[in-house]
């Protein structure tokens, strides 16, 4: 069995802009073959972290390493030979056609990737012979994604990669990520689409206020996910069972819908439900990444 290699390491990384801490003391590492989802609300520090990873900016404190080498703006190009990058707001050269741009990207690699280019253009169907400036956002994004994967990089860094893509192209993208995972490619992907993160990522890093507040592997996500409980009752349920958090109450017609996450034991939850009065309906489902995300951002979060 091959020994896994650490592709990316961030150690105590902080980034300040004036007095504002965009990223504070972030530490994590990513192993070869992992598909890591990097989630958080706007302004959480995801793009700032990615900028430091790629050497566009340097950390105010701490260090970033890619493939065992420290990344600095002056030497970042060395690791870029093994990295593909695409961002949702990526600016491509508008006067070039998609084909010219991809030729330019391929021109920076010493290997022949003609076959790979053909495969990727089959997947995404980008318009290669029109000037990029005349393309829609989605079509530009297709070219950016082809460019990110075309050189068969060991690590692909994606910042909101599917923003602007239609649902069919999003599926094509997710299929590509799964195929790349099988090939052993490491993928580090920030996204607001938690569904796609849950579908393809083997690990999720949740960022909040410049810090990584959750670092969950797929197994941990499944194991510690808990249940999302939705109760329709005649009155507001104030007292929840032990191990419950982030309750919300919505009034609907003559009833109140109480939704909360239950991380305690299921029998305990069932016993608690059995003695509640005025309950009209109950729905218990697996806690989703979306629910975890909302839970982490719920300022009123408290365990009961």
């Amino acid at each position: 069995m091959n020994k896994s290699m650490t592709v990316m390491t961030l150690s105590g990384v902080s980034k300040k802009f004036g007095s504002f801490n965009a990223v504070s003391d972030v530490s994590f590492s990513v192993e070869e073959g992992e598909v890591v989802g990097f989630v958080g609300v706007n302004g959480a520090g995801k793009t700032t972290t990615i900028n430091m990873l790629l050497g566009f900016t340097s950390p105010s404190q701490g260090k970033v390493e890619l493939f065992g080498k420290r990344v600095r703006p002056s030497n970042a190009h060395k690791s870029h030979a093994r990295i593909g990058y695409a961002a949702g707001d990526m600016e491509l050269p508008l006067k070039m056609t998609g084909r010219q741009y991809l030729d330019f990207v391929l021109g920076q690699s010493s290997d022949d990737h003609t076959e790979r280019l053909a495969q990727l253009t089959d997947v995404f169907g980008p318009q290669l012979d029109k000037k990029i400036g005349t393309l829609s956002r989605g079509n530009k994004q297709k070219i950016a994604l082809v460019a990110a994967f075309v050189t068969e990089p060991a690590l692909v860094v994606l910042d909101e990669p599917t923003s602007g893509l239609d649902p069919i192209m999003q599926d094509a993208f997710l299929g590509l990520v799964r195929a790349e995972q099988k090939r052993g490619t490491t993928i580090f992907m920030s996204s607001h689409y938690l569904q796609e993160v849950a579908e393809v990522c083997t690990r999720v890093l949740l960022m909040k206020n410049g810090k990584v507040v959750e670092d969950l592997s797929q197994k941990e996500l499944e194991r510690s996910g808990g249940k999302t409980v939705r109760i329709r009752a005649k009155h507001k349920i104030v007292k929840l069972p032990p191990g419950s958090l982030a309750p919300t109450h919505d009034e609907q017609d003559d009833a109140v819908i109480t939704t909360f996450t239950h991380e305690g034991a299921v029998p305990e939850l069932l016993r608690w439900l059995a003695v509640q009065r005025g309950i009209e309906d109950v729905d218990i489902s697996e806690r989703t990444l979306d629910a975890m995300f909302r839970g982490a951002y719920d300022d009123g979060e408290k365990r009961q």
Partner: peptide, 11 residues
């Protein structure tokens, strides 16, 4: 942002 696009390549 086009400068970053070029700098994301091995340049």
């Amino acid at each position: 942002g086009r400068l970053r696009t070029v700098l994301s390549l091995p340049v």
